Simulated scan of single mutants.
Amino acid sequence: MPQLRLPPLPTIGDIIRMYGLRAEKQLSQNFLLDMNLTDKIVRHAGSLNGRYVCEVGPGPGGITRSILHSGAKKVIVIEKDQRFMPSLELLAEASDGRLGLIHGDVMKYNMRNMFPNDLRKAWEDDPPDVHIIGNLPFSVSTPLIIRWMEAISSHSGPFSYGRVQMTLTFQKEVAERLVAGVGDPQRSRLSIMSQHLCKVKHAFTIPGTAFVPKPDVDVGVVHFTPLIDPLIQQPFKLVEKVVRCLFQFRRKYCKRGVEILFPYDYQELVDDVFEMTGVDPSTTPQWLTVDDFNRLCIAYNDICSRYPGIMNYNYR
């Protein structure tokens, strides 16, 4: 049986010095050296004992150590930066076969077959024994979570295993947007796209002073559990288009956002949308509920089915 505790290893700070590592500003890299905080991130993922974990962007391996200490059966890390591979290889050698390394870009890597097939569960079942954890670089966090939301909607990629849970870090403002409720000034496209597909929880905030180098903002840890049934049961691209257009004018009436869904010659359809949905056109987007967006998406889908080509219209 593999050992669940790692042998004595140099600290993450020592690893950084040993291998001459430094965070690259252009890659939005920040190192988290405090093992109490990395352990706390992992605890908020829930019990990982005997489970399989994919960690995204491990860097020098601080959170990786905490995942291994938690009793995870297998951990696979995806790291784009070649400079971190020697330090991760050192950790892999000490892990008694529990740590696997992938040198690649998570934005391009297909995570569909990372783990054994027998871990796959039906979508209606409890979440599988697979978890995604990551201290994401700020530069990729938003496009990556949108990509994963699309994968959740299609049950593809890592979510071919079922309702895989995720515990991820974001800059504090993005974390607040992900969980923002109706009327919250931070409510945005991210709020709707995540909340209609997942139960989203802001776990805790890490002060920027805990990172090296210190970022200009604090960092929020967010936990995601995919819902069995999305709250908006329409194609992902359609939902994303409607939500994006409405929040394009977040401080104006939502009618302005609906207007840009349609070409100039079809503006009479704007009033049809509000008649079909009962949504008040003078409401600003932050005050729209997920159910409001659901009705707007249903109406837009109905109109697109009657007027071929409108779905492909891009006001830009």
Rank of each mutant, 00 (worst) to 15 (best):
V290A: 08
D291V: 06
N294M: 08
D265E: 15
V174G: 06
G181N: 07
F249A: 02
D218T: 04
K172F: 10
K237F: 14
C254P: 01
L261P: 05
F204T: 03
E268S: 13
G220I: 06
K252S: 14
D216E: 15
D229N: 15
F170Y: 10
V179P: 11
D184S: 11
E268L: 13
S194R: 08
D216Y: 13
R244L: 10
L197G: 11
L197D: 09
R177A: 00
V200W: 11
Q195W: 05
F211M: 01
Q267P: 07
P158N: 09
L178C: 08
P285H: 05
E173C: 01
E275I: 11
Q186S: 14
L178M: 10
P226T: 04
L178I: 10
I232V: 03
F247T: 08
P230Y: 05
R295F: 09
I192T: 03
F293G: 04
V221R: 03
G257R: 00
Y161A: 02
M193Q: 09
G278T: 00
T277I: 10
V221C: 00
K252M: 10
V270S: 00
C297Y: 02
K201F: 12
R177N: 00
R189E: 08
M276F: 14
V164N: 10
P263S: 02
R250S: 11
L261T: 06
Q195L: 04
H196D: 12
L269V: 08
R251W: 09
K201N: 14
V243D: 00
G181V: 09
D291R: 14
S191I: 01
V182I: 14
L168A: 03
T284L: 12
A299W: 06
T283S: 15
L168I: 02
Y253E: 13
K201P: 12
V179H: 05
K252Y: 08
V222M: 10
E173W: 03
P285I: 07
D272L: 14
F262M: 11
P207V: 00
I228C: 12
Y264Q: 15
V212G: 07
S160P: 06
W287Q: 13
V239K: 09
L190M: 03
V219P: 00
E240F: 12
R189A: 09
A203M: 14
D218A: 02
A210D: 03
K255A: 11
Q234V: 07
Y300T: 15
L231E: 09
M276D: 12
D291W: 11
I206S: 03
T225A: 05
F262V: 01
D184N: 14
T283F: 11
V182W: 09
P213G: 07
D292E: 05
V270T: 09
R177Y: 05
F249Y: 15
T277W: 08
I192E: 09
K241N: 15
V217K: 01
Q165W: 12
P207K: 05
R177D: 08
V174M: 02
D271T: 13
I260T: 13
C198S: 10
G257T: 08
F236I: 03
R295K: 15
L227F: 03
S191P: 07
A299N: 04
V221T: 02
K201A: 13
V243Y: 08
Q195V: 05
K214I: 10
Q186L: 12
T167H: 01
L246T: 07
R244S: 15
A210Y: 08
V164K: 07
P235F: 00
S191Q: 03
N301T: 10
T283V: 13
L261G: 06
L238Y: 07
L178V: 06
D292L: 01
L168G: 06
C254D: 05
